[in-house]
């Protein structure tokens, strides 16, 4: 059994608790053990780097230092957390004076320095290795045949390119591979890596509503029954900011896989969405 440290991030303990539950359930079924990182803190998200170059790296660094002490690879479900942890790793690896100064602070404040040894992986990266795709295929109980899905990557998983685990960060493929492994039909569509504007969702809902509308319309034109995300901020934004009327459900990838694996609890995850996704999945739910 493979064992990982797990950094849920703030959203997965609250607004995105269904992503947390689905991810833990899917990993458990695939014999991947997740051990929550003890005493983790918020990564600072977009507000950290907007207002403080120091906190932009210091907050993620504390989590990296904690993860190093656990001596396992660190799995992260949120694209924003993942991005900031990876960007901080690159900042520390570049070893400028600012990075050395921050590491002296880490040693003084956290009691141990960062040594650059922890491997950080996004949930999608773990689920989409050839071995894991095979394991998923072998575990499918309810193949999602005929379900047309638009995989939405958003910004932070693949930009800047240095954080990406895709062969081509401008044309990511990993989510489509997982969707195909559970029998669903991933669609080609143009807005896969467009920005949904989540960091402005509360402060400029008018602008963000426009971006969300563009993304959902593109998915609808491609014939999608639903969108699939791997980020709690994208999901909250796309789920909550569509114009009333013909709303499109927005799944987490872990939920889609969990439904296909026939996992108990799937109905409970889906009941927490704002746009009810159960009609789109009626034929496949246990």
């Amino acid at each position: 059994m493979a064992r990982y440290s797990y950094y849920p991030g703030c959203s997965l303990h609250a607004s995105a608790a269904e992503y947390d539950a689905a991810t833990r359930a899917v990993f458990g079924r695939l014999d991947l053990q997740l051990q929550e990182l003890a005493d983790w803190n918020c990564c600072g998200a977009s507000s950290g780097h907007a207002l403080s170059p120091y906190l932009a790296h210091a907050l993620p660094l504390r989590n990296l230092v904690l993860a190093e002490a656990q001596d396992q690879e660190l799995v992260v479900p949120c694209a924003a957390c993942y991005n900031l942890l990876r960007v901080t790793q690159a900042f520390m690896a570049a070893n400028h004076e600012e990075a050395r100064e921050l590491n002296r602070d880490a040693e003084e404040i956290l009691g141990r320095p960062y040594r650059g040894q922890v491997v950080v992986r996004h949930v999608l990266e773990v689920l989409s290795t050839p071995a894991m795709l095979g394991a998923i295929r072998a575990s499918v109980r309810r193949p999602l045949h005929g379900l047309a899905l638009a995989a939405y990557y958003g910004c932070l998983l693949n930009r800047p390119a240095s954080v990406s685990f895709e062969e081509n960060p401008e044309q990511p493929q990993r989510m489509e591979k997982v969707l195909a492994a559970v029998g669903a039909k991933p669609l080609p569509w143009p807005a896969r890596t467009d920005c949904c504007g989540a960091s402005l969702a509360l402060s400029r809902p008018d602008l963000v509503g426009h971006l969300v509308h563009e993304i959902v319309s593109a998915a609808r034109r491609a014939g999608a029954a639903a969108l699939v995300t791997v980020c709690p901020l994208c999901q909250a934004n796309l789920d909550g900011r569509q114009p009333k009327g013909r709303e499109m459900p927005v799944f987490y990838l872990s939920e889609v896989v969990g439904v296909a694996l026939g996992l108990k609890g799937a109905a409970g995850w889906l009941a927490r969405h704002l746009v009810d996704p159960r009609p789109a999945l009626r034929a496949y739910l246990a």
Partner: peptide, 11 residues
């Protein structure tokens, strides 16, 4: 302030 830090420009 409106830059959403999506880093499309960086790419």
């Amino acid at each position: 302030w409106l830059c959403a830090a999506c880093r499309t420009c960086v790419a």
